[in-house]
């Protein structure tokens, strides 16, 4: 097994300050939002790596950095041994670009409403001057639509069908990696299962690697081999799926599991988790989770925990064992 994506010490800081004139008048310092903070992980070839987290956890930003839509502030991302941010060889960059594709959350915004489906699907190939004859039709059938749909416009399709078109577009340049950013969270349950099944089938057929970004634990449990849990831009725990679900080590992971609504928990009466996700502009000191953590000790508010390996699990917590 070898890593197809290597993420090392990745940090991304966004400047979200007001214009300098406002800052001068209101005497406010620059506001810097740390969306991703010192995150490291490897994605194995032909596996599904899932990033889970609530809003503000930085999971989408990591996805965008990996596909090259956002530049990292610090740290590196290597895809097939090529670092997109520092590589100077244009051919190599182009090759990696073709190897990595993305599926977005909103199937209504991710297809250009003025383009025919045929042109949308073939664009990744056409943009590189490749041959596109019959390509869209073939891919449409592969994702469960009909070849005759190629001449239609996106508005003629339902949300689930649009997401299939997005998948067909992602497949057209014959990528090795697909970053899936909440691919089913805008879909209804009955349609979600169709799309998830399709993605599983395609992965086997084409030997794809998925980086699966989601907030939905049930979906992640269904899809992932390896799961990384993010909190406030930091990777707090990483473990193989079964390991993570049977023995979560980080208190945040445990809280997340307890809070998720369960279909078999009729009238469950549990104490809901305390507090809310803190402001990412002024994150808590030390471990970002300590203000909400039931196990917190003074050390947690002073010292940021390092990633430690416990069995198959990597966890960033002083108390975990």
């Amino acid at each position: 097994m070898s890593a197809i994506i290597k993420v090392e010490n990745l940090t991304r800081i966004f400047d979200v300050s007001k214009p300098w004139l406002n800052r001068m008048i209101e005497r406010q310092p620059k506001a810097l939002l740390t969306a991703v903070s010192e995150v490291s992980f490897d994605v194995e070839r032909n596996s599904v790596y899932a990033l889970v987290g609530e809003s503000g956890s930085g999971k989408s930003t990591i996805g965008k950095i990996i596909v090259g839509l956002v530049a990292p502030s610090e740290g590196t991302v290597e895809v097939e041994g090529v670092d997109l941010a520092s590589e100077s060889d244009a051919d190599k960059i182009d090759a990696v670009r073709a190897d990595i594709q993305m599926i977005f959350q909103d199937p209504y915004a991710s297809l250009n409403p003025r383009w025919r489906v045929r042109d949308i699907i073939a664009e990744p190939v056409a943009a590189r001057g490749g041959k596109t004859a019959g390509l869209a039709e073939r891919l449409l059938e592969q994702v469960g639509l009909s070849a005759a749909d190629a001449g239609k416009y996106p508005h003629e399709f339902s949300g689930g069908q649009r997401q299939r078109i997005c998948i067909a577009r992602a497949l057209s340049s014959e990528p090795k990696i697909i970053v899936c950013d909440e691919p089913t969270s805008a879909l209804d349950v009955s349609v979600q299962s169709q799309v998830l099944n399709l993605m599983s089938d395609l992965r086997e057929e084409f030997g794809l690697t998925y980086l699966f970004i989601s907030h939905d634990l049930t979906v992640v449990h269904h899809m992932a081999d390896m799961i990384g849990v993010l909190y406030l831009g930091r990777l707090v725990e990483e473990a193989p799926r079964d390991r993570l679900f049977s023995a979560p080590k980080h208190p945040y992971t445990q809280m997340l599991f307890d809070a998720a609504p369960r279909m078999d928990a009729f009238g469950r009466e549990v104490e809901p988790p305390k507090g809310e996700i803190p402001d990412a502009i002024n994150p808590p000191s030390g471990c970002a989770f300590h203000p909400r953590c039931p196990l917190a000790i003074p050390r947690c508010s002073q010292e940021r925990p390092e990633m430690r390996k416990i069995g198959q699990t990597r966890v960033a917590c002083h108390m975990a064992e």
């Binding site: 209804d188 349950v189 009955s190 299962s193 169709q194 049930t218 269904h222 679900f245 369960r262």
Partner: peptide, 24 residues
């Protein structure tokens, strides 16, 4: 019944999800 079966359940593991064909 279809809705229930197409929701991924933690207890079911990796098995293929049941699909309701088509859309509303």
């Amino acid at each position: 019944a279809g809705l229930m079966e197409s929701t991924p359940l933690a207890s079911q593991g990796r098995k293929r999800l049941r699909q309701i064909p088509g859309a509303m």
